[in-house]
């Protein structure tokens, strides 16, 4: 492994252990995608083969069906403690992307996450976001506080220095822990290759197309690609200037769509 990947891995492990030592009830948001799957792998490394917290999947009911099958199979194989949650009320009331993409994201992802944070009393949610994904994530802290109603006070973030993270906060608030913040998309794929991390095969080309970023079926587009292996994906990424989330429709709704969603508690 390159010294660069080794350093990223070591720092992420350090972050996971800090979260486990300092925060109360902890959960890891597993979206089935490549990033949170790498996170799962890093948790296994941090805790010597164990995962001392549950894995959480916010299921919008619109996920690409293969993702759900993969989730259940992997959870069974690895013996993961899984929490799957849906915003049942919103789904019963007929929420779907035609009612507005951002409205739908807010109901089925943000609100669903908020419901389950409250229900299980999570003090820490480990999330696989990265700085290079999009603007508002680029400005994140590693331990990022969410206040009343999961509000992110992004214009007034606390100092974070020398590996001393935000671990004291009022009851009812929680911390989003971001162990992958300093990783890039290509680091993720190089790590998957190096460590032979199993990932869902939606990332690999079928009939000339593949998913580069995974989300809900109606709002996630495929890219043209011939990449059949992890190595071919890496080669492709080394030669592209297209952004990773170009296929994610909710990002394109408005220049600051993600900032607004994330201010209100979106992952």
């Amino acid at each position: 492994m390159t010294s660069h990947l080794k350093a990223l891995e070591a720092y992420s492990v350090f972050i996971l252990r800090e979260a486990y030592a300092k925060l109360g009830r902890l959960g890891l948001l597993w979206s089935i995608g490549k990033d949170s799957t790498v996170l799962l792998w890093l948790a296994k490394k941090a805790f010597f083969g164990h995962c001392p917290f549950p894995f959480i999947h916010v299921d919008t009911n619109f996920k690409i069906p293969e993702m759900i099958a993969y989730r259940d199979k992997t959870a069974r194989e690895l013996g993961l403690e899984m929490i799957v949650h849906q915003n049942v009320k919103a789904l019963e009331e007929g929420m779907n992307p035609q009612m507005g993409r951002l409205t739908c994201c807010k109901a089925l992802k943000t609100e669903a996450l908020s419901q389950l944070t409250a229900k299980y009393g999570f003090e820490g949610l480990i999330v696989g976001v990265r700085r290079d994904e999009e603007g508002s994530r680029s400005k994140e802290r590693i331990f990022s506080e969410r206040g009343e109603a999961d509000f992110w006070d992004y214009a007034n973030q606390p100092p974070e220095l020398w590996g001393q993270f935000k671990t004291d906060f009022p009851k009812g608030h929680h911390i989003r822990v971001h162990p992958l913040l300093q990783w890039n998309e290509i680091d993720i794929w190089r790590y998957i290759e190096e460590e032979r991390v199993p990932v869902i095969d939606l990332y690999f080309s079928k009939n000339g197309y593949r998913y580069r970023s995974l989300g809900c079926e109606p709002c996630t587009g495929k890219i043209k690609s011939e990449a059949l292996t992890v190595r071919e994906i890496i080669n492709e990424l080394e030669n592209t200037t297209v952004s990773e989330r170009a296929g994610r429709a909710q990002d394109q709704e408005d220049a600051y769509a993600m900032q607004k969603l994330r201010r209100d508690g979106y992952m």
């Binding site: 290079d132 999009e134 603007g135 508002s136 680029s138 400005k139 992004y154 973030q157 300093q182 220049a255």
Partner: peptide, 29 residues
């Protein structure tokens, strides 16, 4: 780099960010 709406509207950097850059010789954060 100034990704926040407030930063662009006011033309001022509010918060820090990091990004990757590479030259022939080396990688940078």
């Amino acid at each position: 780099l100034d990704a926040f709406e407030e930063e662009r509207k006011q033309g001022i950097t509010i918060d820090t960010t990091q990004l990757r850059f590479k030259t022939k010789a080396r990688d940078y954060v």
